[in-house]
Design a protein around this nucleic acid. Structure first.
Lengths: 139, 139
DNA sequence: ACAAATATTTATAATAACATAATCATTGTG
DNA sequence: CACAATGATTATGTTATTATAAATATTTGT
């Protein structure tokens, strides 16, 4: 008889199922098609559409090296999706801000990415509510 | 007053949370470090460790073009992680089979990828059980 | 048997992703 | 003020990823 730490095995099982669910519902291609830009760029755009970020913050969030963020933002800027705005109090930092058309494109990506898989939609409402409740506890 | 389809909004919200959870717990880098091969190769290896697959089936599952699967499997084979076995009844198809060392490496990747995020482990056991129950309904 | 279809491979090219060093401007500190 | 530290950029190169066309071997259908 082996005694196992309470929820940890269940947690592992749940996590595996969860990760599979998300990975098998991958919409990167669809998003790239719809937006006309690479998924990496969409990801950056969606992030700055949430709130303006400095180049460095963006690099950290995207786990990219700063030089590569520079060229990525260059491309987004040329496409008119973001603009660079000097930081008001520190002239070393550049804030990346989504333009209106950038926000629209980010929204388009959101619409695709937030579309839940069929299996989830088919769940009884009570179970969905329960899922929502539990997920808010995960922090 | 607009009437909205019952669970679909909740489903969308739940899905967003879920996707964020999985994406923010990305372990691709860690897995690549630990295995010494690219994540794409790990993915293929883990898949054939589950069961032997033909090149074509693998291409479909990985959403890759067949020529690229060939070179990917070439690499895995050179590393001694898989072998190619001709299909018993159709000599056009090549079955990709994980070797013992390939299965070990796949297991190593599994151990990392299946490790749940802290927030999930902290959940009350009852909620975890409930999560598991609901997730089995998602098919 | 023969033509069409299927599974894989070879060859090749284009592009994307990733990393490093060096440079410039600006800011904080002794 | 001099100097170290910071944020961003430029330049550059390497490796991965992705795609396409063409070739080979085998099977299937007529």
């Amino acid at each position: 008889m082996t005694r196992v730490p309470a929820g940890s095995d269940v947690a592992r099982e749940v996590w595996s199922t969860l990760a599979d669910l998300v990975i098998n519902h991958d919409r990167k291609r669809e998003v790239a098609e719809a937006t006309g830009i690479s998924f990496a760029k969409t990801r950056a755009l969606r992030r700055v559409a949430l709130e303006p970020l400095s180049m460095g913050e963006l690099a950290t969030l995207l786990v990219m090296d700063p030089p590569n963020v520079t060229t990525l933002v260059d491309d987004l800027q040329e496409a008119g999706l973001v603009r660079r705005q000097p930081h008001p109090s520190d002239r070393r930092v550049m804030l990346v801000v989504a333009t209106p058309s950038g926000r629209r494109l980010a929204q388009l990506a959101d619409d695709i990415l937030e579309r839940p898989p069929a299996g989830l939609v088919r769940l009884p409402v009570a179970d969905l509510e329960e899922l929502r409740r539990i997920l808010t506890l995960v922090r």
